[in-house]
Amino acid sequence: MIERFLMNTHYIVLIGVILLLIIGFFGALTKRNLIKILIALGIADTGVNLFFITIGYISGKTAPIFSKNGLTASQMVDPVPQALVLTAIVIGVAVLALGLSIIIRVYEHYGTLNVSRIKRMRG
């Protein structure tokens, strides 16, 4: 079952993806500092993006850019995931930027970044 999956992607990259995901979620769940949580979520996000890229990779093919003339589409890797990852990265950036600006506001009000103390609204 896993073989078919691994066949067209280097399994090292896959392990990298899984590691990134684990680090990301582990960091998000255990770290108390809000900024660290955001960074951890960013890591998880890059993990997923990496996974997306590895899906499109066909071994022995080159990047889907018509740089040199005479490069036919058949020699190129599947371009769709790469396009998607671009948007995903943009979205990741937007979320991070917005997160940081809100964190500034939160810091102004709470004086702390410890997530377990930012819970005036509960119950």
Binding site: L21, G24, A28, L34, I37, L41, A44, D45, V48, N49, F51, F52, I55, V80, P81, L84, A88, I91, V95, L98, G99, I102, I103, R105, V106, H109, Y110, I118, K119, R120, M121
Partner: peptide, 29 residues
């Protein structure tokens, strides 16, 4: 105070949701 606290919580959980959505879509693709 309330708005920003709610915002940050919403953002944290929301980014988890988007990560998993992306993962699911990747597998399907």
């Amino acid at each position: 105070r309330k708005g920003s606290e709610a915002g940050i919580k919403f953002l944290l959980v929301g980014s988890i949701s988007s990560t998993f959505l992306l993962l699911g879509i990747a597998i399907i693709y």
